[in-house]
């Protein structure tokens, strides 16, 4: 798996993407309490910035309305 600069991703970088995808899945669960939704969104937005910084993905997760 390569990053946007064309380099092989490190295992930490791959785990970072997995962590984000995990949050995305959690956010899709039905009937989450407002406190859970808000804090999951905060966490997802924060992780997304690290993904942008490291150039791991260029697409924005618009469907999450972050």
């Amino acid at each position: 798996m390569k990053d946007l600069a064309g380099r092989e991703m490190t295992s930490t970088e791959k785990r970072l993407l997995k962590a984000f995808d995990g949050l995305e899945k959690l956010l899709a669960e039905p009937d989450l309490a407002p406190c859970v939704v808000a804090n999951l969104k905060e966490a997802a937005a924060a992780l997304q910035v690290a993904i942008l910084d490291l150039g791991l993905r260029a697409e924005r997760p618009d469907e999450l309305h972050l």
Partner: peptide, 21 residues
């Protein structure tokens, strides 16, 4: 990672971000 990235890699990264944006 990016602040010391060789210019060539940096350009590639910018190009990919540009395309998506």
């Amino acid at each position: 990672k990016t602040e010391t990235m060789p210019r060539e890699d940096l350009r590639r990264l910018q190009g990919k971000k540009l395309r998506a944006m």
